[in-house]
Design a protein around this nucleic acid. Structure first.
Lengths: 216, 216
DNA sequence: GTCTATAGTTCGATAGAC
DNA sequence: GTCTATCGAACTATAGAC
């Protein structure tokens, strides 16, 4: 289970539709995306979309389910390889969280934009997050709690959520940091981005914990 | 200039339309929002929307322009009151950045959701950010640079952008930190949220700077 | 499983009376 | 400045042939 064909490759209709839908939903959002545009990009008739996925909402959910399954399996595999008692357990945990959506299998910029929309979205999006991301989130929060035994559950869960916020806006805003830095064009390699994010998030979480222990 | 009537109050059509549009765009996004729904919420005929704003895109831009003007004026006023040489200049700068969109005049949760969508959005959204938020962003980056003279421009601009990401996802995700903390329901007062965000962001930025000086 | 054709609705925008 | 009425296009979804 869990294998995934290359996007736009020679695959059966169902997968080609999911690939096309991922791109169109990423470009235009849920409301802006049209079943017609998805069918055209997939190279199939519009009726086939409804045969496989019944309606637009189910198709959207299927896109999320497929990609989140891949990303979360990768995340949990990496998390399982972390020694939670090591001194650098926290950055290792954060890397396990952030690398899969940015790497191969993560769906590239297309799914990153969908994920960003999910994170800041409406009630439907929140329900999809609850369904497809909360179980994995709970395991990462447990891991952070183990690595940071003196931190409160409150600080850990806030830290986790702010980490996700940091992640999704970083992938969405590509270009703006360079623009606001006045030039300084893209010497930002992809793995350097992850390092920057992990450094920032770990600093933020540790500051939350320090502040909380100071005011105790 | 810059005064704003209470939402849904007795005001002239143009302002009532902007109030209604802000709510509907927040709830449904740009594509999901309908001119019909906006007119209904404003209590005016649909034709009046086109008389005042020509088309949907211009109406959307007008919503952003009105609210960003209020927020950024408030931000810059607070920033001007900060002593950039003080020891706690950084958290003061971050408060000046984050309190206006969360406080009165910030548009409440409605505009916060629009702002989140802008931040993670498509090319049209990016252009609106460039137009209405980049000038103020540049002043905040300058202030951070003054308060943190040993930090590189690269670290400062990344820190600023990650701060914005932290802010917009925090306001969008309300409820999820509590959910993932297993109960622990909303003892999170609004100004406590700002304090949490400022603590997290300052810790993140200082970690970026420390990492950069370590690898020099 | 994939196609064509179309029903039924909603949308953004315009025309024209007042 | 505000209204009613409506056009033409785009949309989601379904029916039915193959």
């Amino acid at each position: 289970m869990g294998e995934l064909k290359q996007p736009d490759s020679q695959s059966t209709g169902r997968d080609r539709i999911l690939d096309a839908a991922e791109r169109v939903f990423a470009d235009d959002g849920f409301s802006g995306a049209g079943m017609k545009a998805i069918a055209a990009r997939a190279g199939v008739a519009q009726g086939l979309l409804h045969y496989h996925f019944t309606n637009k909402e189910t198709l959207y959910a299927a896109v999320i389910e497929r990609r989140s399954g891949i990303i979360n399996a990768d995340r949990l595999a990496r998390l399982g390889a972390v020694d939670l008692t090591a001194a650098n357990a926290v950055p290792q945990i954060l890397r396990a969280l952030m690398e899969p959506p940015l790497g191969p299998g993560g769906g590239g910029r297309a799914y990153a934009r969908i994920l960003a929309g999910l994170t800041v979205g409406d009630a439907r999006d929140a329900e999809l997050v609850r369904l497809h991301y909360d179980p994995t989130a709970a395991q990462f929060i447990d891991a952070l709690q183990t690595a940071l035994p003196h931190a409160s559950r409150h600080a850990i869960s806030w830290g986790y959520n702010l980490a996700i916020g940091t992640l999704v806006t970083a992938v969405s805003q590509s270009g703006r940091p360079e623009r606001l830095a006045n030039g300084d064009p893209g010497k930002t390699r992809p793995d350097a981005v992850v390092t920057t994010l992990v450094t920032y998030v770990e600093g933020g979480i540790r500051a939350l914990i320090a502040s909380e222990q100071q005011h105790r």
